[in-house]
């Protein structure tokens, strides 16, 4: 029966519906959730680049030759390694751009007479002042018997040493 009286249940139902929809709209448009920043992306990029660069320096130019890393550790000291490593990690595709990464390299080797693991620095491009850094490592096979000059004082035998490089954005 339609008359002039406002229908009770209908009005109440409409009022309740409007109230809920309005609340939901208000809530959704105003709530924010804090998501964590992905700070490890920088570590990931640095670590991948450092591992690539060490692999390149440990690849000889032809079959049977020694790689640059092997020759540096057996005979030449660490300077050419440092220059080449710095050049490779700081090169970008645009030849006019240069990145600003710094490194510090240490050699770990096993001393067969004492059985201890000893370390000796190879080369670094800057002093490490506690920046955020990643460490990359590479196995290198060396055999520093004479006539090699053995500048790092390793055992004169066939051995595998570990080159560890600390890499940071300077």
């Amino acid at each position: 029966m339609v008359d002039g009286l406002g229908q009770l249940y209908t009005i109440e139902g409409v009022a309740a519906g409007i109230l809920m929809v309005f609340t939901a709209y208000l809530v959704i448009s105003s709530t924010t959730v804090i998501t964590p920043q992905d700070i490890h992306i920088i570590d990931l990029q640095l670590e991948q680049l450092g591992n690539d660069a060490l692999a390149i320096l440990d690849t000889p130019d032809s079959l049977g030759e020694k790689s640059l890393l092997q020759r540096q550790i057996e005979n030449d000291g660490g300077n050419a390694f440092g220059e080449n490593f710095s050049r490779i990690i700081n090169s970008k595709v645009n030849p006019l751009e240069v990145d600003n990464l710094k490194f510090s390299a240490i050699l770990y080797y096993r001393d067969i007479s004492s059985g201890n693991t000893l370390s000796i620095p190879i080369n670094n491009s800057a002093t490490y002042l506690r920046e955020k850094a990643v460490k990359v490592k590479r196995w290198v096979y060396v055999n520093p018997v004479p006539p090699c000059s053995n500048p790092f004082g390793l055992n004169t035998r066939n051995q595998t040493v570990l080159v560890e490089v600390l890499l940071w954005r300077g």
């Binding site: 229908q7 009770l8 009005i11 109440e12 309740a16 109230l19 609340t23 939901a24």
Partner: peptide
């Protein structure tokens, strides 16, 4: 015939409860 009574206020109260829960 329905009149303005207290009977329908439980619908609005349900609406209020849902809003507060949201």
């Amino acid at each position: 015939m329905a009149r303005l009574t207290d009977e329908a206020q439980w619908i609005v109260m349900m609406g209020f409860i849902v809003s507060i829960t949201i």
